[in-house]
Write a protein that binds this DNA or RNA. Structure first.
Length: 210
DNA sequence: TGCCAGGCCGGGT
DNA sequence: ACCCGGCATGGC
């Protein structure tokens, strides 16, 4: 069994299943993926709840909503002006290409869809891959700040390697399976939050410590 | 009370 | 091809 697979089993044994993504529908997950950029998830939940209260958590409602009002509703998520613009960009794409249907989007070929998502203003690699994996159940591995920090702190890969290199490490070590990728990324976030904080040395009680 | 949180863009070198 | 400043709230 390879290194990355061992780590997965260690984390799963320690923490158990994480039940990601916290969201009810593919569209809600996509919105959450944009809102959570460099932002605490608790703040994102407030923003999403504001949209739900206004019955605005659907493509059509946000599409026709004035951007100033959208910014006000998502304010707790931080960066509300840029994120309002980014949500608008994503939803314009969703409306134009798939008539607002995440189900139609899901039928698209994964690689070409990833390229299209990356061309949207405000959708970078992590956001695109989060939408592909967690909203559309595509077998794409999500890399984030925790992934880089956890792996680098445990001497598995240098922190400054680019996104795609980290991604390839997982892809080449694991079966290409959406369920596995889903749980693995969630577990990395979990261990990162718990044992691998930003400005601390290698944690002594981390389950990954050999 | 300053630091941090599930990034990304645009301009400069 | 990198590097960096800007974007902002709420919890601890």
């Amino acid at each position: 069994m390879n290194n990355l697979l061992k780590i997965y089993h260690t984390l799963y044994q320690f923490f158990g299943p994480q039940y990601w993504w916290p969201g009810d529908t593919p569209f809600e997950i996509a919105v959450g993926a944009i809102l959570t950029q460099n932002t605490n998830w608790g703040n994102v939940e407030k923003a999403i709840n504001n949209l739900k209260k206004e019955k605005a958590l659907n493509p059509k409602a946000i599409h026709k909503m004035p951007i100033s009002r959208l910014a006000l509703l998502i304010k707790p998520a931080g960066y509300f002006n840029v994120k309002a613009k980014r949500l608008k960009s994503f939803i314009k794409f969703l409306m134009n290409e798939y008539r607002g249907s995440m189900s139609k989007m899901k039928k698209e070929d994964t690689n070409s869809l990833r390229e299209k998502l990356l061309s949207i203003n405000g959708v970078g690699p992590e956001t695109a891959d989060s939408i592909l994996l967690y909203a559309l159940e595509k077998p794409v591995f999500v890399v984030d700040a925790y992934t880089k920090r956890v792996l680098s702190r445990h001497g598995i890969m240098e922190h400054d390697k680019p996104y795609e290199i980290f991604q390839e490490l997982f892809i080449s070590s694991l079966k290409r399976d959406a369920r596995l990728f889903n749980e693995y990324h969630a577990l990395i976030v979990r261990v990162g939050k718990t044992f691998c904080k930003r400005r601390e040395p290698l944690c002594e009680i981390c389950p990954l410590k050999s």
